[in-house]
Design a protein around this nucleic acid. Structure first.
Lengths: 212, 212, 212, 212
DNA sequence: CATGAATGAGCCTTCATTCAT
DNA sequence: CATGAATGAAGGCTCATTCAT
C-alpha cells in the first residue's frame, strides 16, 4: 500500500470496490423484495422460494447473496429501519410549539399505522423471532435502540417546548409507546377502524402524561 | 326425557357424557404438552411431530383429537390463560393498602417474567400469528380481553385504595402495561437480568402515573 | 340334529339365524352408503373414513362388519347389480313389436345414463380396479355376466320379434353395447348433453345392425 | 432480434433454449418411468414416492419437474399416445387389399393386447379418473380423439379397398372397437388366453359389419 | 461469478387397520 | 357384541441447502 502501488493494483482496487458495491446493491434489492413477502405472509409462512418468486431473482441467486436464511432476515430487519424513522425527524424540525409537535407526532403515528400496517406486523414478527433465535438478537437490538432514540427525541423536544421535563426514562417511554402502537396495530388489522383515531388520541395524551 | 326414560337410556347418556369428558381431557393433556414445545421452539419452528414427540402421545393421536394445526393452536391459546390470570386475583383480595397492592402487583409481574418467560414469549408469538392468520383472531381477542380486565381490576382497586380515580381507560392501561412487559421480556430473554428489577419498578411507577 | 333336537337347540338356531340376518342386513346398509360415496369420489379418493362419515355408522362399525376394504368393495359391487338390471326386464315383457322393443331399450339406456351416471362411473371404476386387484376379478365377472345376459335377452327377443336371427355372439354383443355406453358416459360427464341422444340413437341402430 | 443482436444475447438465447429442452427432456424421462409404475400398480395405488423409487430420480426431483400429481398424470397420458398409434399407420400404408388390411389390423390389435396389456389398463384407469377429476378431461379428450381418428383411418381405408362405404360415424366406430378391446383386455388380464384370438376374430368381423 | 438442478428431511394430513374395553 | 381410541406408515407437498457447471 502507498506510493509504490502501481496503476494495475489501483485498477484492481477499484474493480473490487465496484464488485463489493454491486454485491451490496444486490443484497439490498433482494432484501427489499423479501420485506414485501414477509410483510404479506409472516416469517413462519415465508420460504426463500416465495421470496425469490416474488422478486426478479432466481432461487439460486438468493442463496448466492445470502449465506443463510438468517443472514437474509438480519439484512431485512436492518433495511426496515430506513423506511421507518425518517419522517419523524421532519416533524421535530418543523414544529415550533408543543401543541404542534404533539399533534404532528400523533398524526404521524396514525398515518404510519394506516399506511404501513403490514410492514410493522412484520417488524413485530421478526422481533418475536429474536426471542427464539439468538442470532437475531443483535440486529433487533440495533433497530429497537434506533426507535427508542426517535421516541426520546420527540419526548425531549416536547418537554423543551412545553417547558416541563420528562418524568420518565428513555427506555420506558419507548416501551409505553410501543405498547400503544402494537395494540392499535392488532386492532387495526382485525378490522377495527377506530384504532387509528384511538392511536392518535392516546399518543398525544401519553406525551402530556410523560411531561406533566 | 323424563320419567319414562329407562335405565338403559340413562346409562347411555352417562356413557356419552363420560366419553365427551374423556375426549376433552385428552385434548387438554395434548394442548398442555404442546404449550411446552411451543414455548421452547416458537410457532414457526414447532411441528405437530415435535409436539407429539415431546409428549406421551403418538403422532396420530394428535391428529385424532385435533382436526387441524390451527385447531390445536386455538386450544393452546385458551389453555394458556388458565396458567396466567389466577395469581393476580389473589393479590387483589389480600391487599389492604394502595402501597401493598402496588408493590404486590409489581412483584407478581416480575415473578411472572422470571418464572414463565418462555410461556409468555409463546403468547406473544401466537398473538403475532393472529395478525397473519384470521382464524386465530377470535381466540386471541378472548385472551387479550381477559388480560385487559385483569389489569383493569388492579388499576381500579388501586385507585380505590389510593382514593385517586384513574385518568385512563381500560384498553389503554392494558396497552401500556403490555408494552412494559413485552419490553422486559425481550430484554430478559436476551440475558439482561436487570430487566426484572426494571419491570418491578416501572410497573409500580405506572400505577401511580395512571392514578395521579 | 334331527328328531332328538330339543326346544332349547331350536331356540338357539332361531337366534343364530336372526343374528346372521341382522349381520347381513347391516352389511347391506353399509354397502349402500358406501356406493353413494364411491359414486361421488371414485375408488382412489374414497377412504373407509369417508364411507363411515357419510353413513349412520361409526368408523369402527364398518370394520366390524367387513374384514377388509376389499371385502366391502366386493359387497358394494354385488349390491350394484340390484339397482341395475331390473328395469330392462320389464321392457322385454311388455314390448310386442320389434320397433317397440328397440325404442324402449334405447330409451331405457338413455335414461340410465341420465339418471345414474355417477353410479355407473363407479361401476367402471371398480371394474377397472379388478384389472389391478385379483381379489375383485371374481365378483366383477359375476356382474359382467349378469349384464351380458341382460343384453343378450334383449338381442334375442328383438331377433325373435323381427324374425331375423342375430349374427353375433352374446359376449360380443355385450362388449359393443358396453363400449357405446362407456363412451356416452364419458362424454355426458364431461358436459356433452348430446351424449344422451347419441346413445339412444346408436343403441337402436346397433340392435338393427346385429340382426340384419 | 435481428442484426443488432450481439453474440452475448444470441448465446443466452441458445442457452435458454437448451435449458428448456433439457427441462422437457427430464419431464419426459420421469413420465416414462411413471408410466411403468402406473401400469403396474394403477392410479389408486401409485404414489409419487413409488414413481420416484422405480426411477433414477429422487423424490424431490419429481416435484421439481412437476408442479403437481395431476401435472404429472397429464404428462403421462400425453406420453402414452406416442407408444400407441404409430404401428397402426404402417399397416394402412402397406395393405393393398381389403382382406390384407382387415387381417393386418386385427392382428395388430391382438398383438397390442398381448404385448402392452398393462399399459392399456393404465390408459383405461386414467381415462376413468377423468370422470372424477375435471382437470384430466382435457388431455383425455385429446388422446381419445387421436385414437378415434386412427380407428377411422382404418375403417375408411377398408371401405375404400372393399368398395363399400361405412354405414357408421367415426365416434361410434371408435366406441365399438374400444368396447371390444376393453372387454378383451379384462378377460386377458383375468387369465383368459382365448381373449387374444377372440379379439382378432371380432376386430376383423366388426370391420366387415361396419362396411357391409 | 452465477445459477438452475437436485437433494432428502420435514411439513400437515389421511389411511386401513388393530386394540382395549 | 360393538365401538371409540390409538397406531404408524404413507399420502402429496415444501423446505433450506448443496452442487455441478
Amino acid at each position: 500500500m502507498g506510493i509504490t502501488e502501481g496503476p494495475r493494483s489501483r485498477q484492481r482496487a477499484r474493480a473490487e470496490r465496484a464488485a463489493v458495491d454491486k454485491f451490496e446493491r444486490r443484497r439490498a434489492e433482494i432484501a427489499d423484495s423479501a420485506l414485501v413477502t414477509l410483510a404479506a405472509n409472516g416469517y413462519a409462512h415465508t420460504g426463500l422460494r416465495d421470496i425469490a418468486q416474488n422478486s426478479d431473482f432466481s432461487h439460486g441467486v438468493v442463496h448466492y447473496y445470502f449465506s443463510d436464511k438468517l443472514d437474509l432476515m438480519q439484512h431485512c430487519i436492518r433495511q426496515y429501519k430506513q423506511d421507518c424513522v425518517k419522517q419523524y425527524d421532519e416533524i421535530l424540525e418543523t414544529a415550533t410549539t408543543s401543541v404542534e409537535l404533539r399533534d404532528g407526532f400523533a398524526e404521524a403515528m396514525a398515518e404510519t399505522l394506516r399506511d404501513e400496517s403490514t410492514l410493522h406486523r412484520m417488524w413485530y414478527d421478526l422481533r418475536n423471532q429474536s426471542m427464539f433465535t439468538a442470532e437475531l438478537v443483535g440486529v433487533i437490538k440495533e433497530i429497537d435502540l434506533l426507535l427508542e432514540q426517535m421516541i426520546w427525541r420527540v419526548v425531549e423536544r416536547y418537554a423543551d417546548l412545553a417547558d416541563s421535563p420528562p418524568t420518565i426514562t428513555s427506555p420506558v417511554a419507548y416501551a409505553l409507546y410501543d405498547g400503544l402502537f402494537l395494540r392499535s396495530l392488532i386492532d387495526f388489522l382485525a378490522g377495527d377502524l377506530e384504532a387509528l383515531e384511538t392511536l392518535r388520541r392516546e399518543c398525544a395524551a401519553l406525551l402530556v402524561r410523560l411531561c406533566p
